[in-house]
Write a protein that binds this DNA or RNA. Structure first.
Length: 108
DNA sequence: TTAATGACCTCCG
DNA sequence: TCGGAGGCCATTA
């Protein structure tokens, strides 16, 4: 298996510091494929069986909305993990998302 | 090889 | 302000 788009996504997601979050589009853009935002989410779909475990709960859409929480088991786990890291989630939305935003293109 | 899928993003009415 | 539709591209069957 050569390094694919998936591996790029997994590696960046694993690099997200604790208590920080990023967006699918930001990851895709940092990979040089700003139009491939959907691929990031698609990669996460396979991330369930990837080791080490992927902190997919730190990845949300550009609005800071937990769009993919339903892919967790249970769905509330995503919010629970984020709150455990000191983030505040209200209505499936990250409060102060911009303040906790972690841009891979900038941090890397 | 062709066709279908998707945890998104952006534009238009 | 809110809702709907289209486009983007890699992976899988």
């Amino acid at each position: 298996m050569e390094p694919s788009f998936y591996d790029q996504v997994y590696e960046i997601v694993r690099l997200i510091p604790k208590g920080r979050v990023t967006s699918y589009g930001a990851i895709a853009k940092s990979l040089g494929a700003g139009s491939s935002s959907r691929l990031v989410g698609y990669a996460m779909n396979n991330a369930h069986g990837i080791l080490p475990k992927i902190p997919a709960h730190r990845v949300v859409n550009r609005n800071g909305l937990l769009t993919g929480k339903f892919h967790f088991s249970p769905p509330a786990l995503m919010q629970q993990l984020l709150e455990n890291e000191g983030l505040v989630i209200i209505e499936d939305k990250i409060q102060g998302f911009k303040a906790h935003f972690w841009d891979p293109a900038t941090e890397l």
